[in-house]
């Protein structure tokens, strides 16, 4: 049966990765530096990559959550359901979800780095010979990922907002609360688990993405951790790509490669699991109310 074939393939992949990669895992590997030789099995660690990935997704969350949540609130609470404007926004959000991630990479390069960063440089550092903002950087990678994950946050937030019974809003309004007060004090606290799910799903999706950060911030190699928003960074997912395609001796570096993959998978799966659990809870509440 097809279902079991799919599950068998999945088990095969995960089994292969965890069996081979589990052995390479050690605190030294996870927290070790890669500043000497990142292809050296005995000494290389992935801490700079874990740090870089964490930095870019945390920064991304700071951008995407406020924008996504306000959009969702606008769409469910304020926007007239049938107006053409609302439909255009909804259509755009829907479409954004299907855009290939490499196109987001191009967008980040063309818009954030060239247009925004370039303009900033013209005004802030007209005399600097080297671009300060107009180059690949942590902040641009995070912004690019924020644009990419926007639909995830909007959809999850909208879903949880719609699950809140109308009666609750009416009760608040009947007490003389304004619409804004109702949204902020009654609706939003109820929707929190949904917003959290959206955030976590966005993070887990973004953590594994490579294509959007190829040109917007990821570095092949850096001797130190990024110091500011305009620095480039090493990245866990990008490192998987580097190790599998650029390694001088793939057989020899295999343990680091598998180890890196396991760390990446554990990270994304853990995030996914949390999101699934919260979502299941939200859905159950929804069903009980319906």
């Amino acid at each position: 049966m097809a279902t079991f074939l799919i599950l068998a393939i999945l088990a095969l992949i995960l089994g292969n990765i965890f069996l081979q990669g589990g052995t390479g895992l050690s605190p030294r590997f996870i927290f070790g530096n890669a500043d000497k030789d990142m292809f050296d099995v005995a000494s290389a660690g992935v801490w700079p990559m874990v740090f870089g990935t964490a930095a870019r997704v945390i920064l991304m969350t700071l951008f995407v959550i406020p924008v996504g949540v306000t959009t969702a609130i606008y769409l469910t609470e304020y926007a007239p359901a049938l107006s053409p404007f609302t439909r255009i926004i909804r259509g755009a959000v829907n479409n954004l979800a299907g855009v290939p991630s490499i196109v987001f990479g191009l967008f980040g390069l063309g818009f954030f780095i060239s247009a925004v960063g370039g303009t900033l440089d013209v005004f802030l550092y007209p005399d600097s010979p080297k671009p300060v903002w107009g180059k690949a950087a942590l902040i641009w990678a995070s912004l690019t990922l924020a644009v990419m994950t926007l639909p995830v946050v909007i959809v999850a937030t909208e879903e949880s907002l719609r699950a809140i019974p109308l009666g609750l809003r009416e009760a608040s309004l009947a007490l003389g609360a304004t619409k804004l007060q109702t949204v902020l004090r009654v609706v939003l606290p109820q929707a929190l688990p949904g917003i959290l799910t959206g955030g976590i799903l966005a993070v887990s999706r973004a953590a594994g993405e490579v294509a959007p950060i190829l040109f917007t911030g990821a570095a092949y190699y850096m001797a130190s951790l990024p110091q500011s928003l305009t620095d480039q960074f090493m990245d866990l997912a990008y490192h998987v790509f580097v190790l599998s395609t650029q390694s001088p001796d793939i057989e020899k570096t295999r343990p680091i490669l598998y180890g890196t993959v396991v760390v990446l998978l554990l990270l994304t799966f853990a995030l996914n699991l949390v999101a699934i659990l919260i979502r299941a809870r939200v859905r159950r509440n929804l069903r009980r109310l319906a």
């Binding site: 992949i13 790509f241 490669l257 994304t268 799966f269």
Partner: peptide, 10 residues
Amino acid sequence: GIPSVVLGFF
């Protein structure tokens, strides 16, 4: 939930 770079690696 498997990142595409991991599928590519595999």
